[in-house]
Amino acid sequence: MKITKSAQSGTMQSSDLMIFLEPADELIIEIESTVKQQFEHLIRAKVEEVLTQHQVSCGEIRINDRGALDYAIVARLEAGLKRACEKE
């Protein structure tokens, strides 16, 4: 999959996260989180896992996490990718 346009997914409610996706020439992942200190590496690992599964190798992905569990991170990223990779 290739990120071809800007898209976003998720919400700013607690236990959720908001993801912003933009086309880019390289892979950039930025993470803001209410639990950044403890969990940033785990969030990043989950995001990378999903990107690899969907064969996404470039794009700018900004995450604003409100304490989401793994299933929600996966779901929001999948929804975001679907929106950002849709054909025009």
């Binding site: 997914s9 998720g10 569990l69 793994d70 299933y71 929600a72 996966v74 779901a75 929001r76 999948e78 929804a79 679907k82 929106r83």
Partner: peptide
Amino acid sequence: KDAARILVRRFLEN
């Protein structure tokens, strides 16, 4: 609608 059904699926799998 598109995002909610993905969230529900991932939640139930978990």
